[in-house]
Design a protein around this nucleic acid. Structure first.
Lengths: 339, 339
DNA sequence: GCTGGCACTCGCACGGACCGAGTGCCAGGA
DNA sequence: TCCTGGCACTCGGTCCGTGCGAGTGCCAGC
């Protein structure tokens, strides 16, 4: 068990290192922090912290830098979440309030988050798994061609073009549209399959039944596909402030950012709305081993429908970043609830 | 006027420099290219080329590298467009063909272009300025709340939520929907304003007229807003292969890539479908002064509806890049025309 | 007008010396 | 028992001098 003072030393090391980006030595520490002890004592504490694996020396005879384990302890026990100031909160709210549609909300959120944290921001679109169908629209484009438009309660719209096996009349189309909507409007995505399975039987013509089946399968396909989350990223220019040894550090990060799958995993598969910090190697994806991810769920009601977060160097200002992420998530939730 | 051989020397310099990324000297040139003359002669030619501003020395007593002007000449007169091989063309076609919707087409195009050129790819969504309205859908969400869905012939769908000044009945809504569609379906965006301006008069109730006016203004607003182009970028990881002096080169590029406006300008405002190469300082935006942009229009029919291109270092393989860009544009056009 | 030769320039890589921040250890004191 | 000041030691970073070699410009000769 580490003594109170040693934790204090660790905190000081993390803070200094985050600030200066340089290994911090015992003398500099006592000068910048009121630890009340001499450098020699701090050296002993540092040796102990190093034995425990919380800090490390990049080279012999250099200062210490925190390890992933050290940051972990810092985040868990030594640092709180730094709340946003009132003016900052107001600015966030104002900025998000003038969004015109869902895309715009997400785009603004990304920009905001990137600016506040000066890191790379990632925002997942509100998930469709928990959302409901608001309306299904069918439009005749050509005799044997129908466009399917799906509108969700989160304001998302998806469309698909369908080639029908046979021409489909306007009246049949209107009929199908009405039947479809009366069954699925307001229902959850997951309930849709069983609600529509007997729909083809309502049509007398064999050809129409074929078309209806085609339309339904496209609808179900769309539901499944769009349940996969989309996301938006921004602030990649902040990667340039990452570290000194550029190409090697930045490359895998940029690559990871282009892989939606990786990013989604990064934000955390579980729909756990709590804030989560993953430090360095805690991110399964190698190449992100020198980055940390701060993510949190956000949602329109009480429940989280998606996640957002930032990706930055392990050497980041955790309290500030966590504060910004939490605040943005809260206000995005509000905006979504209002619309 | 430069002699034939001097042009040949310039071509050799560009090719070698693009390949090796190192200043190229007279001796190396004669070894790698069959110029039929001695290094000394080449040196004289190089001196002449330098006088004319086509090449430069990074330091005294170093080899030469092409200037922007040199690349310009190379692109205009010395290099053709390197066509894709048959297997490559087939691969492009196959990859694009399995797209499911417009977003997917654009996403695939970006990835393809980035992979083929190993550079940053930018693809503009098909423009709405020349496109027509396929359908306008109005959905009642609440007594005084209507959702407007606009579907274009390029397959794009936009939606807006509208708060009405007064409750609006289902029948009035159906009436408005029918009138609206009969007027604007199939018409160009630019024609819509005058086609709908007298619509409110068709409604007797003053309250309804207010709502109709609100709906119409939202529709027009959407048309205008969405005429602004959206775009998608990819392959940013390729930026790491940019050059040696990293942070300084890459930073402004990443920043520029986040600014839609800048990017749109980069692709070229004019709807000129011809392939265009902008080299270094020819890009108005400073910070992109060491990058070149190869862009070309693409379209579903004969006319270009949008542009796509790649952004890379001025030291890029112009013939290959131009070939890839042209090929991709052609096939995207085909895919769009089919759907 | 091309060529070979020659003197010159300079960036770069290598290696030694120096400096200083930082460490570990130890003996002495509260 | 814990803290402190002192001391010897380590070693990365910087500076400097040297030598090498690629590359240049110029010139006389073919």
């Amino acid at each position: 068990m580490l003594s109170e003072r040693r934790l204090e030393v660790l905190r000081a090391i993390v803070q200094d290192y985050v600030g200066t980006e340089e290994p911090v030595g015992s003398k500099a520490l006592t000068e910048r922090h009121k630890l009340g002890v001499s450098p020699a004592t701090v050296r002993n504490d540092m040796a102990a912290l190093e034995d425990e694996g919380y800090i490390a020396q990049p080279h012999t005879s250099a200062g210490r830098i925190p390890t992933d384990k050290g940051y972990r302890l810092f985040v868990d026990r030594l640092a709180g979440v730094k709340p946003m100031t009132a003016p900052e909160r107001r600015a966030i709210q104002n900025f998000l309030e003038c969004s015109v549609d869902l895309d715009d909300v997400v785009a603004r959120t990304v920009r905001l988050l990137a600016q506040l944290t000066r890191q790379v921001a990632v925002v997942q679109y509100p998930s469709l798994t928990r959302s409901t169908v608001r309306h299904v629209e069918l439009l005749s484009m050509a005799p044997a061609r129908v466009m399917l438009v799906l509108i969700t309660d989160t304001g998302r719209v998806e469309q698909r073009m369908i080639d029908c096996p046979a021409p489909f009349g306007e009246t049949a189309l209107a009929d199908l549209r009405a039947r479809l909507n009366s069954r699925v409007a307001g229902r959850r995505f997951t309930d849709v399959p069983q609600l529509v399975q007997d729909l083809p039987e309502a049509f007398e013509e064999a050809e129409d039944r074929g078309t209806v089946t085609t339309v339904l399968s496209t609808l179900l396909e769309t539901l499944v596909e769009e349940t996969e989350e989309r996301l938006m990223i921004g602030g990649t220019a902040n990667l340039t402030r990452f570290g000194h040894d550029f190409p090697l550090t930045i490359r895998p990060v940029l690559e990871a950012l282009e892989e939606q799958v990786v990013l989604l995993k990064l934000l955390g598969e579980a729909k756990d709305p709590a804030m989560r910090v993953r430090i360095g190697h805690e991110n399964a994806h190698e190449g992100l081993s020198s980055t940390s991810v701060v993510s949190v769920g956000y949602g329109s009601g009480g429940e989280a429908v998606a996640k957002l977060g930032v990706v930055g160097p392990t050497r980041m200002d955790y309290p500030g970043t966590m504060g910004a992420v939490r605040a943005v998530a809260r206000y995005v939730g509000q905006i979504l609830a209002e619309s």
